[in-house]
């Protein structure tokens, strides 16, 4: 039997990974197609869209959290969903923070492909749906960079998830909000152990992704 403090740490860590993982997944599922679409097509309002994505990449997470908490509050427009102060509100907010990062970096990766590649693929007469996979394969380095940036952003985010999650014990407390709380309670030892775990997770994940990136480059 684990001692309660360690048990709490494990529980909070698992929740952190679950919330961030889900948000990352949603951001990738939404962001990569949008990025590819924006990057590989021409239409009139494209410039406007691209610049709003670029602005979104720099959006302060705390503003995203504020908007989320107003929208999701019982008295707010989406109050009937009963989502404020649940992990799902945290996933939605984290997705909103990660999405512009994923779109923006996908867009940049598509943009960095040289025109010859496009021409080659076209002249080879490869069917359209295969072309998409070839494109994804071609920009996988850029996509990994997007994953690393988005994961780093939402894993270390504290203001927004505190606002929409409420840092409720056993429900919405994640590593960053727990560190904030224990620091404000003067419990620096617990805060420090949680900070170590958070940092360890970041190192591990970043290391894993970098390794993937490096081994992908050799192929």
């Amino acid at each position: 039997m684990l001692d309660p403090e360690l048990q709490t740490l494990v529980e909070i860590t698992l929740r952190t990974l679950w919330v961030c993982g889900s948000a990352l997944l949603l951001a990738l599922l939404g962001g990569v197609p949008i990025g590819i679409l924006l990057g590989s097509s021409q239409f009139i309002s494209r410039g406007l869209l691209v610049s709003s994505v670029n602005a979104g990449m720099g959006a302060p997470p705390v503003v995203v959290g504020l908007i989320g908490s107003i929208l999701l509050a019982r008295s707010g427009p989406l109050g009937s969903w009963n989502l404020l102060y649940t992990p799902y509100a945290m996933i939605i907010t984290s997705t909103a923070i990660a999405l512009p990062l994923v779109i923006g970096l996908t867009l940049a990766a598509v943009g960095s492909l040289d025109d010859e590649w496009e021409l080659q693929v076209r002249t080879l007469g490869i069917p359209r749906h295969w072309r998409i996979w070839l494109l994804i394969r071609e920009i996988r380095m850029g996509l990994l960079a997007a994953v690393i940036a988005a994961l780093g952003g939402i894993l270390s985010e504290v203001g927004a998830v505190n606002m929409v999650g409420g840092n409720i014990a056993g429900e919405t407390r994640v590593l960053t909000t727990a560190i904030m709380m224990h620091t404000s309670m003067g419990e620096y030892e617990i805060a420090m152990s949680q900070a170590t775990v958070l940092f360890g997770n970041l190192l591990l994940l970043a290391g894993l992704l970098t390794w993937l990136q490096q081994s992908g480059r050799k192929r």
Partner: peptide
């Protein structure tokens, strides 16, 4: 994502 634990 779907089966993950939640007290909500």
């Amino acid at each position: 994502l779907i089966t993950s634990p939640s007290g909500a």
